[in-house]
C-alpha cells in the first residue's frame, strides 16, 4: 500500500475512481473494511488482507456501476506502432499539467476495465505489479498490456481539452 497516505485513504481513492462520487466511495470503503473485520480472509496476514480489501472493493463497485466499455479507447493522436502495440503519445505528461483534478478523475473513471483498476492501483495506491496482478487475476503480460492500454486511452481522453498540446 502507498506510503503517501494512510492505507485506508488509498483504498478510498481507489473507490473514488471506481464509483465516482465521494459519498458512495466513502460508504463502499467503510463497508469493505467492516467486511474484512467481521469475515476476514483465511490467511489474515497484512498482505492477504490488503489484497482482499482491493478485490472486494472492486467486486462490489463493479456490481453497482454500469460496466465500462470492454475495448480500449482509440488514441486521439495517431501513435507509432512498436512491436505491434500503440505507443503513448510523445510528451504525454504535457497534456495533464494544465488540467483540473476533476477532469482527470472523470476521464479515469471512464477507462475500460481492468486497465482502469490496474492503473489506479499502480498510481494511487502504489501497489507492486505482483500484487495488482493477484488482485485483478491477471498474468504479467496481461497486466502490462492493461496498464499500457489504460495510459494510452487516458491520454486520448484528455488531449481534446488540453489547449497547449500541439497535434
Amino acid at each position: 500500500m502507498s506510503d503517501r497516505d494512510p492505507w485506508e485513504q488509498s483504498l478510498l481513492r481507489f473507490a473514488r475512481i471506481l464509483v465516482g462520487e465521494e459519498a458512495p466511495a466513502r460508504q463502499l470503503t467503510l463497508e469493505v473494511l467492516e467486511a474484512a473485520t467481521t469475515r476476514p480472509p483465511a490467511h489474515a496476514d497484512a498482505g492477504e488482507i490488503g489484497k482482499f480489501l482491493y478485490r472486494e472493493l472492486r467486486r462490489r463497485a463493479l456490481e453497482r456501476r454500469p460496466a465500462t466499455p470492454a475495448t480500449p479507447a482509440t488514441p486521439a493522436t495517431p501513435a507509432t506502432p512498436v512491436n505491434g502495440s500503440v505507443d503513448l503519445a510523445p510528451d504525454a505528461a504535457a497534456a495533464v499539467h494544465p488540467l483540473e483534478t476533476d477532469r482527470i478523475e472523470a476521464a479515469f473513471r471512464d477507462l475500460p476495465e481492468p486497465g482502469r483498476s490496474a492503473l489506479a492501483l499502480l498510481l494511487l495506491d502504489g501497489l507492486d505489479a505482483d500484487t495488482i496482478a493477484r488482485v485483478l487475476g491477471l498474468n504479467d503480460a496481461d497486466l502490462a498490456a492493461a496498464l499500457h492500454g489504460a495510459r494510452v486511452a487516458l491520454h486520448a481522453a484528455l488531449v481534446p481539452v488540453a489547449p497547449e498540446v500541439q497535434p
Partner: peptide, 12 residues
C-alpha cells in the same frame, strides 16, 4: 505521464 496523473489525483 504517470507522475503527472498521480500528482493530480493525490491533490484531491
Amino acid at each position: 505521464f504517470d507522475r503527472a496523473i498521480a500528482a493530480k489525483l493525490e491533490a484531491n
